[in-house]
Design a protein around this nucleic acid. Structure first.
Lengths: 379, 379
DNA sequence: CTGACCGTTTTGATCGATCAAATTCTTCTG
DNA sequence: CAGAAGAATTTGATCGATCAAAACGGTCAG
């Protein structure tokens, strides 16, 4: 938090008027040719030890930094990933994508990649942007987020030969194109685990609040509940509800569930928004102790002490980059032509347990918040 | 939502193997010289009408798109804005910054600017990144977010001659550097308005829940409350509380306030997190009808029907870009040397009223949610 | 001593655009 | 109709790096 001054390397760069040094400047200073300098940077192995050190010192002394544009122009690649920020996501659940963006920025940086963001109003607009960015060689690979049924973006990108990976499976496609690389989280397994855990804890009638079908992610999650709830079909149907996402919606549906003659003794929801609504409903109905589980482990869930299924975004991002660039490489791999190597990755989420599956909700506020991340935030 | 195929211009670009056309290709096709093509793109005014049309047609036919790297190399500017995504913000309030990022991406796009994001672990790390990005001429201007007391970043950037604008005032500086361009929202006025509104509605004892001092934004907001609450100092002190940000914290403090012999009849908070906590406290204490106002108008506030002070992010972003690039220009202005033109902009927020200042909280869930933005969101 | 061979370094060309200056084409004046 | 002034267009150089191939220096077998 303290210790200002010299961040980065601290060479004597005065104001900012004098131009940045170039390879030629470094070459002159180290008494070698441009190319040798270039080699020191890009293939140090082929340069003799002592010259390498000499050049390196010159680089440090002058504070040389390769010009990204020049390099990109010559190499024909930008080492930049494009990412569309979805303008629709304004709900609580949108926070997942934010975390995804963060992680992506972090891990991309570690690989010396840049991340460029853009926003678009719809799928068509998005594709137009992608084309522009790629044709201008601004960006050489894209990450698609939030694929859904009948998503025509993937196919277009494949046809155009634009390298990309989607966070989200190709829902609904009868036979998914093997050239489509994707990473996703197994929501079905996540919900299944959550339900199982609740039953281990003694719950016998675990209800489900999900989204209307068809919804790729939603249907998967619902399936997970159905597999694990241990109820005969009819009873299961009675405890299953579908509604648009949202806190009020969740509250309304949960209220109805709790008013049933054979009321549920636990509720699992397809999102934290729905779960928060359910939490409020339970509280209002005097069932403060009712175990409730949400999905996505958003900040709100942490804040109100709601148990939630957490997506392993670190792994998601790592897998995304690996599919795009390989184990460590910095060069983009084109979309695979055949199905030689695995072109997708399905990751398993894990349940984060909090008060909502442990303690009664009422009572002393002092015990709230389970010490989860709660940082002050200004502006 | 429907209508796939041809996004952008739809020229007959087959696979993606053949290289993109260049100015020379276009020139040849239109029977002019490279430079004329360049002129059509950059200064159409000096090209004769008919040649311009001819060239334009060739551009469209070939699907030509200027190569960003080449242009940047030659012009020495990247038309790219750098933005650090703060890894700390994980609370509910962090959502404001997300909205900011969105708006920035949108408006930057309208000006043909790119936005590049990066993440850093601390201020020093951030500055190191900034240096790297700028020295590599990847980015030519930066937007700083969330400035706070003793923030040494601004001064460093000014010293280094790196063009930037901060979203957030230079807090605490005895005499702010006139070369520092910034945009901020007048939180004091926002809170003042909110309190005034509550008093117009009949509230007589409006309490305040804020953050511990010193906090630039926090102190300003508190000042707004104090100015408008209309209570003598002693009484005001009794109704003022400071705590770290967070839902549980807000709940605890609000519970204490409500237990006072002279309890408040309305509460204004420095954040939606605190306000949500207060809302829960009020509900638990049987004061479901207590008017409560939050700050930042986050999705959560919309979801639970909490009134909140909304920051005009559209204007904030517009002002930011204007300070950086001028009215319409695409070229970055350096940090001003003297204080000739205005170098900052202070915008006024406005109160968004919802159920929490209108109706009782309990009662029928059907009436919840005030129709505010609630969109479904998948993985 | 010659020349093949390997490791290291240098030279010339190139990526795709814009700048600055030179050139050609128009138009208008005396 | 010559010639100047202005408009429109073209030419040559350049931005800063990497690629591809050539040149260099040393070792070593024949």
């Amino acid at each position: 938090m303290a210790a200002p001054s010299h961040p980065g390397t601290s060479e004597p760069k005065g104001a900012n008027v004098e131009r940045m040094p170039t390879v030629d400047d470094v070459a002159r200073a180290a008494n070698v040719s441009r190319q040798t300098v270039s080699n020191v940077l890009n293939s140090p192995a082929i340069v003799r030890e002592d010259t390498r050190l000499r050049v390196q010192r010159a680089i440090d002394d002058l504070g040389y930094r390769p010009n990204a544009s020049a390099r990109r122009l010559r190499t024909q690649r930008s080492a930049t990933i494009g990412l569309r920020l979805d303008p629709l996501r304004d709900g609580i659940s949108g926070a997942v994508l934010d975390r995804f963006v963060h992680k992506l920025a972090e891990q991309a940086d570690a690989r010396d990649l840049r991340v460029m963001i853009f926003s678009a109003s719809g799928h068509d607009d998005e594709l137009a942007h992608i084309r522009r960015l790629r044709d201008g060689s601004d960006v050489d690979a894209f990450v698609l987020i939030g694929t859904d049924h009948g998503d025509e973006r993937s196919q277009w990108l494949i046809d155009q030969g634009v390298p990309f990976v989607s966070f989200g499976r190709p829902w609904g496609a009868p036979s998914p194109d093997p050239r489509h690389r994707w990473v996703d989280v197994d929501g079905r397994a996540g919900v299944r685990d959550a339900v199982t855990r609740l039953r281990e804890r003694g719950a016998q009638r675990v209800a489900w609040i999900g989204w209307p079908s068809p919804s790729g992610t939603g249907d998967e999650r619902a399936a997970g509940w159905r597999e694990a709830c241990g109820l005969p079909p009819a009873a299961a149907d009675a405890l299953s509800r579908a509604t648009e996402d949202g806190v009020p919606e969740g509250r309304a549906v949960a209220t109805a569930l709790l008013a049933l003659p054979e009321a549920p003794d636990a509720i699992v929801c397809a999102s934290d928004s729905l779960a928060l609504g359910a939490l409020m409903a339970a509280q209002a109905a005097g069932h403060g102790e009712l175990p409730i589980v949400g999905f996505d482990n958003t900040p709100v869930a942490a804040a109100v002490g709601l148990s939630s299924v957490d997506q392993p975004l670190d792994e998601v991002v790592a897998a995304t980059l690996e599919l795009l660039f390989g184990e460590r490489g910095g060069a983009v791999r084109p979309n695979p032509n055949s199905n030689e190597e695995p072109t997708h990755r399905l990751l398993v989420p894990r349940l984060v347990e909090r008060r909502s599956t442990h303690l009664p909700l009422d009572g002393n506020p002092g015990a709230l918040g389970s010490g989860d991340h709660n940082r002050k935030e200004s502006s």
